[in-house]
Nucleic acid binder design. Structure first.
Length: 476
RNA sequence: CGGGAUGUAGCCUAGCGGUUAGGGCGCCUGCUUUGGGAGCAGGAGAUCGGAGGUUCAAGUCCUCUCAUCCCGACCA
């Protein structure tokens, strides 16, 4: 037996850590709060990156790279921005054996350095829109860290766009939010609620922040991506103006949007179980593992049979074959499950006799005998079914764990006893929001879009007529 | 930054002041095995997190220190 993964029911946090360490996605680093992403974890991130990058390119964005070191004075140019980030900055004060004249910040995000450059690059409406994305690492000095979900250094993507009009910037903000929603749902099989963040949860320096929120298996919410309409805040702070068609001078309108390797954590917490990872086929680095089951006397035949299958499958899916003759089949099954490989193909003497293969689903553990000639077709079908099933399973879970509360008593009871998302009316007052947070630890995750607003609801706390429909939850 | 816990081989762990720090997993060698985490035999691997102290004697007691994890306040 390999080391035991703590069951979810016993201790969800420990399960999460055990799963990551044992499946070799990541390991702790020598520096507190940092993590090493191991090849299996990085392969997963690379798949996500490739998917997102494709969606960004489709929507007209280009990649670029801006440096990690930012002059301290840049951060200070936008008042809200510096206020929001100063508690978590890492600062370089010495370099080359000397004290620096001006300290350098290790970027917590790149708005300031990017806008200092946009000032040079934008003169006319003909230079707009400017649609740039960068894949980078950032540093935020967090008090409390968790593998993938919150680490001192993390990998992410940040898009920074500049537009001629307010409407166009708003359109971009929503467009990218929807790209994130599509990615979460179609690639990660993670249903998310898209909506607007309240003032208190807004990005430091934004006019408005939008987010997608998912619900994890422990019924806590996780913010999976954000998209900000920055208005003219950064353009004004860095004095980025352009000449309009009419010849007037105007500040440009901006957006920024990002998702991080936290998505790996979201993926784990959405689908995985007590035997290890469960990965959606679209993002699984290895989709199929073939396990030949042989004895010494029939090894050549069985492995030969398995290899033919492998050759056929590898032109269509990502497949590996485990021919090791030291580990038992049982060991290999457990290993494939730990790593979240969506389909395991078992082939042994019994299958050879019947000219078939045994397909085993990671999501349901169902064993399906399939006639040899139909294996490729069935594997591809099954990968789609698994992807689909994971999404619908997660969606059903979210539905079961989304509740309505009409009064504060039942709201508190729901938060305490049920968890999950709770939909309630909110008057829009930050004091009510803060008080609810203090008393229940639940925060407004989003004001969901595409719903009919507050309707006849009243504020869950003060009882005034509600201005908004709010989704509350305890969050990561 | 507060509260709690833990540091003994790559990992888990025994030790409860007294010889040469014991075991399991993993690793290496050989043989045998293989339809749900195989068996036998042999082998390598530890300045007991670090510093100081108490003692005839410290993995064990004391002080300090460092690190990590868990729980809370702040956050992608």
């Amino acid at each position: 037996m390999a080391e035991r993964i703590t069951p979810r029911a016993e201790n969800y946090s420990q399960w999460y850590i055990d799963t990551i360490l044992q499946s070799k996605l990541a390991d702790y680093s020598p520096v507190k709060g940092c993590m090493v992403i191991r090849p299996r974890g990085y392969a997963l991130w690379e798949k996500m990156k490739a998917g997102l990058d494709g969606l960004f390119k489709e929507t007209g964005h280009q990649n670029a790279y801006f440096p990690m070191l930012i002059p301290e004075s840049f951060l200070k140019k936008e008042a809200e921005h510096v206020k929001g980030f100063s508690p978590e900055l890492a600062v370089v004060t010495h370099a080359g054996g000397e004290k620096l004249e001006e300290p350098l910040i290790l970027r917590p995000t790149s708005e300031t350095i990017i806008w200092s450059m946009y000032k040079k690059w934008i003169q006319s409406y003909r230079d707009l829109p400017l649609l740039i994305n960068q894949w980078a690492n950032v540093i935020r000095w967090e008090k409390r860290t968790r593998l993938f979900l919150r680490t001192t250094e993390f990998l992410w993507q940040e898009g920074h766009t500049a537009h001629a009009t307010e409407e166009e910037a708003q359109e971009e903000t929503i467009k990218m939010l929807m790209v994130y929603k599509k990615f979460a749902e179609e690639y990660m099989a993670l249903p998310v609620i898209a909506g607007i963040k309240s003032e208190s949860e807004k990005f430091a320096g934004a006019v408005q922040t939008y987010a997608i929120e998912g619900l994890m298996q422990d019924k806590r919410a996780l913010q999976a991506g954000t998209s900000h309409n920055l208005g003219q805040n950064f353009a004004k702070a860095f004095d980025v103006t352009f000449q309009t068609k009419e010849g007037t001078l105007d500040h440009v309108w901006a957006t920024s949007w990002g998702v991080s390797a936290r998505l790996v954590g979201a993926l784990i917490m959405t689908h995985s179980d007590d035997r290890g990872l469960v990965l959606p086929p679209v993002l699984a680095p290895i989709q199929v593992m073939i396990v030949p089951i042989f004895k010494n006397e029939n090894k050549a035949q069985v492995v030969g049979y398995a290899r033919k299958l492998y050759e056929r499958l590898k032109t269509q899916v990502s497949v590996e074959i485990d021919e090791d003759d030291q580990n038992s089949p049982g060991w290999k099954f457990a290993e494939a499950e730990l790593h979240g490989i969506p389909i395991r193909v078992e082939v042994g003497p019994k299958d050879m006799e019947k000219n078939q293969a045994m397909l085993v689903r990671r999501d349901t553990y169902e064993k399906i005998p399939v006639a040899n000639p139909e294996v490729e077709t069935r594997v591809k079908q099954l990968l789609e079914e698994i992807q689909n099933n994971l999404y619908h399973r997660a969606l059903a879970f979210r539905k079961e764990n989304t509740h309505q509360a009409e009064d504060y008593q039942s709201f508190k009871k729901l938060i305490e006893e049920q968890g999950g998302f709770i939909e309630s009316g909110w008057c829009g007052n930050a004091d009510c929001e803060a008080k609810i947070k203090k008393e229940t630890k639940a925060t407004i995750r989003v004001l969901p879009m595409g719903r009919n607003g507050a309707g006849n609801r009243t504020c869950i706390l003060c009882g005034e007529k509600a201005k908004e429909l709010a989704v509350f939850a305890k969050a990561y």
